[in-house]
Design a protein around this nucleic acid. Sequence first.
DNA 1: ATGCGTTCGTTAGAAGTTCTAACGCTCCAG
DNA 2: CTGGAGCGTTAGAACTTCTAACGAACGCAT
Lengths: 220, 220
Amino acid sequence: MAKTGADTPRERYRAQLREEVKQHAWQQIATAGASALSLNAIAKQMGLSGPALYRYFAGRDELITELVRDAYRSLADTLDTAAADGADLAGLARTLRGWALADPQRYFLLYGTPVPGYHAPEDTTAIADEIMRTLLGACAALAPAPAGTPGTPFADHLATHRDWVGDHPATPAALHRFLAFWTRLHGVLSLELAGHFTGMGFHPELLFEAELDGLTAPLS
Amino acid sequence: MAKTGADTPRERYRAQLREEVKQHAWQQIATAGASALSLNAIAKQMGLSGPALYRYFAGRDELITELVRDAYRSLADTLDTAAADGADLAGLARTLRGWALADPQRYFLLYGTPVPGYHAPEDTTAIADEIMRTLLGACAALAPAPAGTPGTPFADHLATHRDWVGDHPATPAALHRFLAFWTRLHGVLSLELAGHFTGMGFHPELLFEAELDGLTAPLS
DNA sequence: ATGCGTTCGTTAGAAGTTCTAACGCTCCAG
DNA sequence: CTGGAGCGTTAGAACTTCTAACGAACGCAT
């Protein structure tokens, strides 16, 4: 099952050193942001000199892509295990918040300001889709609105624009709920993590919970 | 009134060249992002060489700070004139969306991923406060909920945590509405501008309008 | 156990970047 | 018209990513 094929000592060493590089990179990102990531500094921290890291990463971009992949993987696993432990939509929301607060720059690496030229490779978007499916499942698992409740106009639009859903059997109302869930929680989280609430006096967690309340109730 | 005191020819020239630098900087930011902004490239584009720009900006950081200030000023003015033209909360929301779509990287410069070390100078946060006040005013101008409607729990919290409001006579419900307005619209906008909706098939504008509908109705 | 070849880490260097220092030139003010 | 302030230049330091060439170490196969 493990495709972590580290049979030969060389491959084992290689994998280990790559991990160590990534660990230093995360530390550097957390303290100075992703744009300030320096291969040279990492090499120096590890006791080797400059170009040595190019044996392990084709360049700065590949390292960052690898970090993005790991971050997506970490979030997907965190949400999946929470869901497996019986977390409902609200539980997943709090899990997401905890994950984001644990390392804001990691969250921003996934959902922050995009670099205009950069296009994410196929497999990272695949993990992003997995995350969406997990959350969408929790949205679909909520008790549906009582029969006769009129659907939202946007849900009607989603009923005919659900390419992104794949074969998930979610109702348009669930799709609308998922998009509201995603965008609202991202809105609160990203502004909080960016420090736009500091000095305002209120507790961001309470705003998060207030939004969550509106999200688990029937959508207006 | 105009503190734009460009009396002497030198000061006039200086101000003009600063503007030209900023114009090139915006162009460069729009195409490659703020992190890729290069003083050298701007100098080359303008026909002068490298260190010449240090007569006009103390460094890259001061240039970026100036751009942030201009961006805040632009957004504040755009919203203020819209409000002066009688725009209500929904109108201001659409104005905000138009402003953001016109130059996504400018929006991200204000509300995107923060640089861990950086602290915005006093005056930029003052303009940010002005923007908040404009939007808060539009929230307060909405028809209040019918008497007897129970306030949200978060509004109760805001009733005792309103340091940030200054002396604005907004009700706790209006404060809650403003925060929901800000975070929800930022959520939709930032994900849309970051390209996270591309390929999903639905129209982001309709999601924006759906969120706006929920925002102008009484909050849950 | 002993080559031999792959892989590793090194230094050297090119092409960038920001930013400082020192030097003329130009233009404006008194 | 002359002195000084301001402007733009080149030189250079200290960085960055990344390529190229070299020696050394390691492990696999014989």
